Simulated scan of single mutants.
Amino acid sequence: MNMDWQFIIKSLPLYEKATWLTLKLAFISILLSLLIGLLCSVVMYFKIKIIKTITQGYIELSRNTPLLIQLYFLYYGFTKLGIKMSESTCAIIGLSFLGGSYMAEAFRSGIEAVNKSQIESGLSIGLSKVQLARYVIIPQAFSVSLPSLGANCIFLLKETSIVGAIALIDLMNVAKDLIGMYYKTFESLSMLVVAYLIILLPISIFLSWLERRVRYAEFGN
């Protein structure tokens, strides 16, 4: 099969613009997901009444409903309530809503891995719950849960391919439009694969390096 290089060169600006949009959505969503996940895991660990029940309900709802349905609900359903949001805002909220639950579970597993004796020692020297979480639990939990957190970041980056369903011109949407207009299926999909590799491969390598650098009980080695 002959590759139409002229078509590829002509289409590159569209993929470049879509790549930056994908990175923007993923970066903001990952940061918000980490924050949501950390807060949820702390609430679950300290068993804060009422809030814990709400948090459990959120995690179950988020993890057991497809992102596409969540996006449709935000973009189309909320308009019936008089709430109108832009496509980018809906995408960020949807990705953060989904990612937060997965990050919460990753943090929870890390928190549960912290040795109970260290927590008891912290309490015995008079640390408050906030200080205990900040100086003892969270730093160790982060290093333990780092592989899961990294996998969730990659997962959210891949899930950005869904946002085209609400009229955002992301990478997937660009490829579909080009195939529909020019019937250049092989070239369009090849550029799509390359674009995601350019985004995901460096991040994957960085996360692997970070996991080796940050290991539980191996600081300073």
Rank of each mutant, 00 (worst) to 15 (best):
F78N: 04
M85H: 10
E87G: 09
I83C: 10
S117Q: 06
C90Y: 00
M103I: 10
I111L: 02
I125P: 02
G100W: 06
I111R: 06
I119N: 09
I92Q: 06
N115K: 15
M103R: 09
Y102Q: 03
E105D: 15
N115F: 07
T89K: 07
L123T: 13
K80A: 10
M85Y: 14
E120P: 00
Y102G: 01
I92N: 06
S86R: 11
G110P: 13
E120I: 13
V114L: 05
C90L: 04
Y102F: 15
Q118F: 10
I92T: 11
S121T: 14
G100T: 07
S121C: 14
I83K: 12
A113P: 08
F78T: 10
I93V: 15
G100R: 00
A104G: 05
I111E: 02
A113N: 12
E112V: 01
K84G: 04
L81M: 13
I92V: 15
L123I: 14
L95A: 01
G122S: 08
T89M: 11
L123A: 14
I119M: 15
L95W: 06
E87C: 11
K84F: 14
G100A: 09
S96V: 11
G99K: 01
F97I: 10
Q118M: 13
L98I: 10
T89R: 06
I93M: 08
A106H: 03
F97Y: 15
Q118I: 07
S109A: 15
Y102S: 05
A104H: 02
Y76A: 12
T79D: 04
M85K: 10
I92D: 04
V114K: 05
I125M: 13
K84D: 11
F97T: 02
K116E: 14
A106T: 01
S101H: 02
G100E: 04
S96D: 13
S124T: 14
M103D: 11
I93R: 06
R108Y: 11
I83Y: 13
L123G: 10
F107T: 02
G122N: 09
S88E: 07
L98F: 08
S109W: 08
S109C: 11
S121D: 07
G100H: 07
L123Q: 15
A91E: 08
A104S: 09
S101D: 01
S96C: 12
S124G: 10
S109Q: 10
I93G: 05
K84E: 12
E87I: 06
S88P: 00
G77L: 06
L98A: 05
S121Q: 07
M103E: 15
K116R: 15
E120A: 15
S109R: 08
G94N: 02
G122F: 08
M103V: 11
G94E: 03
L81W: 13
G99W: 00
S117M: 03
E112Y: 01
Y76K: 05
E112A: 04
E105N: 12
S86Y: 12
L74G: 01
I111H: 02
